[in-house]
Write a protein that binds this DNA or RNA. Sequence first.
DNA 1: TGTGATTTAATTGTATGCAATTTAATTTGC
DNA 2: GCAAATTAAATTGCATACAATTAAATCACA
Lengths: 148, 148
Amino acid sequence: MRPEERLLLSNQLCFPIYRCARRIIRAYAPLLRDLGLTYTQYIVMMVMWERHEIEEKELCSLLDLDSGTLSPLIRKLESRKLLSKHRLDSDGRVLVLETTDEGMALRKQALSVPVGMACAMKLESMDEALDLKRRVDKLSKALSESMG
Amino acid sequence: MRPEERLLLSNQLCFPIYRCARRIIRAYAPLLRDLGLTYTQYIVMMVMWERHEIEEKELCSLLDLDSGTLSPLIRKLESRKLLSKHRLDSDGRVLVLETTDEGMALRKQALSVPVGMACAMKLESMDEALDLKRRVDKLSKALSESMG
DNA sequence: TGTGATTTAATTGTATGCAATTTAATTTGC
DNA sequence: GCAAATTAAATTGCATACAATTAAATCACA
């Protein structure tokens, strides 16, 4: 391919992924509206439902988001009483997040969200989803490694 | 899969795509720094390099971004004199964007960007890229259709 | 043991995204 | 012809993302 052709929007791989990610977030919005969550808040709660207790540092690492993004978001979830915060006695730097009962209760309401998304995505089979996930993860890993 | 399992981060398809998109934008950042462009500004310029002249409405549609995002961004590119704006004589609502000479000159500098990204993505073959693109586009289209 | 380096969060500043609203121009129906 | 509906951008308000900086706590080690 000529260098100029590589600058055509139609020859991009990154743009479709970027567009798909935005469409995913848009598709989640109506499903999450009932829960009063945004997509980013939802994936944080997803971790909180699974782990009940987690250090902010590990949450940042799991979601690949930094404290600049998560600090204010955690404050909002705390003010909604979906989680609580405390510092480790043994190390005052470490912030521990804990899922509240109210936070766990929200999980029941969230059970319908994956169903709604599966419908919106119109995937033909579990294999199709797993294969796409594998390919995306491979690219994601390569990008992550090349960034140091 | 049990409903609860569908709420595990590790069982998500959407999260990896969302994470990949963010890593893509992060990987572009150092390559675009020399050009003084962000990723979103870069894809706008990509269209401007190809089309020279385009209505804002069509640009919104091509990039799947709305005027709330593009209006301020276009203002910035205009203030950098990479493009110019004028309204249609025949219809004062329509904003037409035109690539300036300075905007076209930036294209030369941008020729190395796709090379840098190809390197960061470590793709094994053109086929691998095309296949991923096709699968992502299929999901993207399904989401778009289910949104109306 | 004291101090410089390191680690963890929070904060700051800039740039998106996008829903909802507003503004201005045009088109439609009658 | 003209009021109502429609269309295209711009604006507003809110929620991320993220680089860079700051602040606080701990660690390393001479």
